[in-house]
Simulated scan of single mutants.
Amino acid sequence: MSDRNLIILILEDQGLVRAGMRELIQISEPQARILEASSYEEALVRLEEARVDIAFLDIDLKGARSGLDFLRQLRERELDTRAIMLSGRSDKDVVMECLREGASGYIVKDMESDGLFRRALDTVFQGSVFLPANVIGRGGFSPTPPSTQAPVTAESLGISGRALEALYWVCQGLPNKAIARHMGIEEGTVRKDYLPRLFRIFKVVRRTELLIEVSRRGIHVPRPDSVPPEGGAPAPAPGIRH
């Protein structure tokens, strides 16, 4: 279980957009502590103030440094912050670059309604990967109003125990070294065992394709503190609290 509230960073240079996002985030996560920054430099200061769980990063900032630069900074520091990119563009090449750099979601800011944008946020907070429709392809998952249909789970695909834990960290955008640290295993084990196993299950050959499949199917991947090891009781959260 969580022993502190989520800390969420909004990096966005437009004050009105930040205010709108803050309001929507507070609806979805009323107990969250929300930090705001209007520039890359200000976001670095916020990063020193608290351990950020989720960062919503505007790609197209007015300054010399972009939200993508800040994403790279997060990954260079090997932080566990989950990065969701914000942009007015949905170009597939841009989205794929963000995923390669360690993003775990991408929300287009000019969505047609606040209701749809809020459902995109809910998708993120529920542990799923949100990507634009043009990236996940025709017939892909998109946030819809609640229905009676049961959500897709990783367990229903035969992913459990340590493999499920590895999938969670991959979906956070973390590199192999950080995943290995969380799981208490060698980096080579992540690269040679868990990743190939997940690729086979999803019928993909790289991480970006794996994230797209998780998004396309609307799969919920539970946090490690709720992942039971094979044949045992629930495992403790490996090095991160939410």
Rank of each mutant, 00 (worst) to 15 (best):
E230Y: 02
R46W: 00
S226N: 15
R207A: 01
R51N: 09
S28R: 06
E12V: 01
E186V: 00
L164W: 03
G218Y: 05
D122E: 14
D69R: 11
G127C: 07
F56W: 14
S160T: 07
A43I: 01
K203V: 08
I7W: 02
E187C: 02
D53G: 04
E41I: 03
R51H: 09
R46C: 14
V152P: 08
R82M: 12
E76C: 05
L61E: 06
P143D: 04
F125H: 13
I8S: 09
M21K: 06
A50P: 03
E41Q: 11
G161I: 03
T153S: 15
K62Y: 09
G231Q: 05
K177A: 05
L210G: 08
V108I: 13
P151T: 07
R197F: 04
M85C: 10
L174E: 11
R206A: 07
F130Y: 15
A178K: 15
L61K: 12
E12D: 09
N5F: 01
G115I: 03
E155G: 11
L6D: 10
P224Q: 09
L47C: 10
A32L: 08
E101C: 10
R22E: 15
S28K: 06
P236E: 05
I27E: 15
G88P: 00
G67C: 10
L116N: 06
V227W: 00
